Computed example of a mutant assay.
Amino acid sequence: MKNSSDTSRGHGEGRAAAEARFEEPADGTTRDRVMSSILHHGPSTAAQLADRLGLTPAAVRRHLSALGESGQIASREQRVFGSRGRGRPSRVFFLTDSGRADYYTAYDELAITALKQLAAAAGPDALAAVAQARVDDIEAKYRELRAARPDQDPAQTLAESLSADGYVASLEPAVAGRQICQHNCPVAEVAKVFPELCEVETRLFSELLGSNVQRLATIAHGDGVCTTHVPVDVEITRKRIGPPVSG
């Protein structure tokens, strides 16, 4: 005969299983949603993911554990700017190269092959022209947004123009400035072979913001986020020269 504790435990286990089935109708689908949320919002805590996806933190942690075991995500301590409160900082989860590979296609291989042939046939100047043409679209979007919002922080405008081009960018606080964080890179696989793409992009950031920005990390080099440091003098520059004049 079962005692009351056995019965209670049985009911508890049954309820937990029922809740799990309700929350996770398809593990693959839910885990895809978790990965997609991290891709589009950048490194995230379990609580942030639970809030976005409408799941309990416990359910999200189960998926994060499975994704971590498969090598699709990794975690690190959340960066804290300013004074840190009591307790350990939360952990944020980000996509690994393996996790990002699910979002890349055979077009990356085609682009790499085409650029290799172009460089071999026409030389490095032709490759530089391709890299410049790629960032011309970013510049055009930036100038369009600056004209519409001349009083907005130019670094924020740049982040928004990058997001419009698929980079899922945000502007984050940092010591002695801010950081433009690009949580996705549509050309990451190509940039691994042709780092000129990243170099031209960084130069464009400096030109648009009127400041010597510094690229700290790139997805192409295996980092979780492309990170560019924007020093505080950008705000001074913006007030001095005002919004760019369209030509």
Results as ranks from 00 to 15, higher is better:
Ala188Glu: 04
Val168Leu: 10
Arg149Tyr: 15
Ala191Tyr: 00
Thr157His: 04
Ala140His: 13
Ala159Ser: 11
Arg178Glu: 10
Asn184His: 12
Glu207Gly: 07
Lys192Met: 12
Leu208Val: 12
Thr202Pro: 03
Leu204Gly: 00
Leu162Tyr: 09
Leu145Gln: 02
Cys185Pro: 03
Val187Met: 11
Thr157Gln: 02
Ala176Glu: 14
Thr202Cys: 09
Leu209Val: 14
Glu201Met: 07
Leu216Glu: 15
Pro173Asp: 09
Pro154Trp: 04
Leu158Asn: 00
Ser161Lys: 01
Ala159Gly: 03
Ala133Glu: 14
Val187Lys: 00
Ala164Gln: 11
Gln156Val: 07
Arg215Phe: 05
Glu172Trp: 08
Tyr167His: 10
Glu172Ser: 09
Leu216His: 09
Ser170Thr: 13
Ala148Pro: 11
Thr202Tyr: 09
Glu196Cys: 06
Ser161Glu: 03
Glu139Ser: 11
Gly224Tyr: 04
Glu201Thr: 11
Leu158Val: 06
Leu145Val: 07
Ala169Cys: 08
Ala140Cys: 09
Thr218Arg: 00
Ala220Gln: 03
Ser211Met: 12
Ala220Asp: 03
Pro186Met: 12
Pro154Arg: 02
Gly166Trp: 03
Ala159Pro: 06
Glu160Met: 11
Lys141Thr: 13
Leu208Cys: 06
Asp137Arg: 15
Ala140Thr: 13
Tyr142Ile: 03
Asp151Leu: 09
Gln182Pro: 02
Cys181Gln: 11
Gly210Ala: 10
Ala155Thr: 08
Asp223Glu: 12
Ala155Ser: 14
Arg203Phe: 09
Pro195Ile: 05
Ser170Glu: 12
Ala169Trp: 06
Ala220Met: 02
Ala169Gly: 05
Tyr142Pro: 01
Leu171Thr: 04
Leu162Ile: 06
Gly210Val: 10
Ala148Val: 13
Leu204Pro: 00
Asp137Thr: 14
Lys192Leu: 08
Pro173Cys: 08
Leu145Asn: 00
Gln152Ile: 07
Gln152Phe: 09
Arg203Ile: 07
Glu201Asp: 13
Tyr142Asn: 01
Gly222Gln: 00
Arg149Lys: 14
Glu199Gly: 05
Ala220Tyr: 02
Gln179Glu: 15
Val213Thr: 15
Pro154Asp: 05
Ala164Phe: 09
Ala176Asp: 15
Lys141Val: 13
Leu162Trp: 04
Phe205Asn: 04
His221Leu: 12
Ala147Pro: 11
Ala159Tyr: 01
Gln179Val: 13
Val175Met: 12
Thr218His: 00
Phe194Asp: 04
Pro186Cys: 10
Gln182Phe: 00
Ile219Pro: 01
His183Tyr: 05
Val135Asn: 02
Leu162Asn: 01
Leu145Thr: 04
Glu201Lys: 08
